[in-house]
Design a protein around this nucleic acid. Structure first.
Length: 240
DNA sequence: TCCTTCGGCGC
DNA sequence: GCGCCGAAGGA
């Protein structure tokens, strides 16, 4: 029988997908899907693929049968939505605070060419730094202008920040400051204090503590919390 | 021993 | 109903 291993658009070059129709037996007509790595290894299930790729890759959105990424199709624990009758009563609020992550097609391991320009150089090992995730300085600026909206695509009102918060760095807009603080709260369980180093205010490009948001050190008082607990006027509690 | 193919368990 | 994997059977 002619085997056609097709290129799969969601996969990097070299990976092939194959679909074989069963032609006899009780399950005639059913099809089996296989993948082939660039090295020729055959994969016949998602768990097998997952084991090979390791924990670094999240295949939750990868549909094995079609070979496509299906964002929003998290097959774990069926999602319920606001407009779903079952969600209206007794539905728990969305407690998932994980930041959304950009989904790319290149979820599979790919060969990397290592280029060493200066083979004689010694690399200083600094374990403290090495375990840190590399992060672009002032990356929060990239979130500027982005707005959240509800299911009806109504843009949600942004938040007002307390007066005392002052930003550090090249961008002083409330937009960026809000993004920086919100992101910091999500990305670490450690206390969020702002930039405690005075040097960071003078030259943030060098002294910025990337684990803290782009704002000057602040403290949250009981008074601040009391203000928050007071229902905000002019804001509806929920859409619809 | 390797590969293809269908059965069938378990969710 | 379907995904996953065992194993039969052929090369």
């Amino acid at each position: 029988m002619e085997r056609k291993r097709t290129d799969c658009p969601a996969l990097p070059p070299g990976w092939k997908k194959e679909e074989v129709i069963r032609k006899s037996g009780l399950s005639a007509g059913k099809s089996d899907v296989y993948y082939y790595s660039p090295s020729g290894k055959k994969f016949r299930s998602k768990p097998q693929l997952s084991r090979y790729l390791g924990n670094t890759v999240d295949l939750a959105c990868f549909d094995f049968r079609t070979g496509k990424m299906m964002p929003g199709k998290l097959q774990k624990s069926k999602q319920r939505f606001r407009h779903d009758p079952l969600s209206l009563k007794g539905g728990k609020p969305d407690l998932n605070t994980a930041l959304p992550i950009r989904q790319t097609a290149s979820i599979f391991k790919q060969p990397v060419t290592k280029v060493t320009n200066h083979p004689g150089n010694k690399v200083k090992t600094d374990l403290q730094r090495a375990t840190e995730q590399p992060r672009q300085l002032f990356w929060e600026k990239r979130l500027k202008g982005l707005r959240s909206s509800d299911v009806a695509e109504q843009v949600l009102r942004s938040m007002d920040l307390p007066k005392g918060l002052q930003s550090v760095g090249p961008d002083s807009s409330d937009d960026t400051l809000l993004s920086a603080i919100a992101s910091a709260l999500h990305m670490s369980s450690a206390p969020i204090t702002g930039q405690t180093s005075v040097a960071a205010e003078k030259n943030p490009a060098i002294w910025l503590n990337t684990c803290q948001p782009l704002c000057k050190a602040f403290t949250v008082t009981d008074e601040h919390i009391r203000l928050l607990r007071r229902p905000a006027s002019g804001l509806s509690a929920s859409p619809s």
